[in-house]
């Protein structure tokens, strides 16, 4: 690979990294997992003057759960850590379903969840998952930290809400109030391919009644789509064939797909409809079994 010339810095602290970002004045890029940035550099689609490698920043490679059930994922936590996570396996089915579907094993070894959110690729899996879960990003800048709900964090294709001198240090999934269920399904032409369409579903229930629902769509719009109407259709009653069908239809309607070499717009809507239905039907059937 022969990228354009750039300066390389590998700071040892967040403060130092922020200072470098300020120095860079908008012409600097952060390098975490590098699984999107490095291909862009290689193709010279991105030619930053300064590359700030944050892999040496201490204490950011965690994912952990607070006593109240809040899940926190540090900026250097790799997809592979989440794939193997006992925390997610026992507490967060939507994330646990998505983790092994992100890209391919090689990418998962290096790439990070927070980096994926920052990259804001409409075909990125994590943005949908965190949206469906109502999560937020913690950004740190020269003036301290602030919380940005993920629905406001991703502002467009490959655009996020960070100021040029801010670093996304953590993603946060709020503590659930009921029992959690959900899943993630993605159609890809081949492992490692971007999603033709992907669907994240996260629900919380009190007894059989759905108390909170989130549905978000991958790869069927110019940014991650938060299918709020579809989610609303589930809240306030137990899952049933009728509510599932209604949510699936609303989610398909919320999609804004384009016809391209991955399939026609109508086909992608069909995938969204089918996947919402499949995830929720699976949830319903497993709860019936448990009940």
């Amino acid at each position: 690979m022969y990228p354009s010339r750039f300066r390389y810095e590998a700071p040892r602290s967040i403060e130092e990294a922020i200072a470098l970002l300020q120095q860079g004045g908008g012409e600097a890029k952060l390098l975490a997992g590098g699984q999107s940035l490095v291909p862009l550099l290689k193709l010279r689609f991105a030619s930053p003057e300064l590359l700030i490698d944050i892999n040496n920043l201490p204490g950011l490679d965690y994912h952990k759960v607070d006593p109240d059930g809040t899940i926190r994922i540090g900026a250097l936590c790799r997809h592979a850590d989440l794939e193997r996570s006992a925390i997610l396996a026992s507490r967060q089915p939507t994330m646990a379903a998505a983790a092994p579907l992100v890209a391919d094993p090689i990418v998962r070894n290096r790439g990070t969840l927070v980096g994926s959110l920052c990259h804001a690729d409409p075909q990125g899996d994590w943005a949908s998952v965190v949206t469906a879960l109502g999560g937020h990003v913690v950004a740190q800048g020269p003036n301290g930290r602030r919380k940005i709900p993920v629905s406001q964090f991703v502002t467009g294709p490959f655009q996020n809400a960070l100021a040029y001198d801010e670093i996304a240090v953590e993603a946060v999934i709020p503590a659930p109030k009921g029992t959690v269920a959900g899943g993630y399904l993605k159609l890809e032409r081949r492992v490692g391919d971007f999603a033709t369409a992907g669907v994240a579903v996260a629900i919380e229930r009190s007894g059989a009644v759905v108390t909170r629902a989130g549905i978000a769509l991958t790869g069927v719009g110019s940014a991650t789509i938060d299918a709020t109407e579809a989610a609303k259709a589930l809240v306030g009653s137990p899952l049933s064939a009728e509510t599932i069908a209604q949510a699936a239809e609303l989610a398909a309607g919320a999609a804004q797909p384009r016809t391209d070499h991955r399939g026609s717009a109508a086909y992608k809507r069909q995938i969204v409809r089918t996947f919402v239905e499949r995830i929720l039907t699976r949830v319903e059937q497993s709860s019936e079994k448990a009940g």
Partner: peptide
Amino acid sequence: APPVKMDDHD
């Protein structure tokens, strides 16, 4: 050949 219509909204 599979069609390539990158601008075809439905």
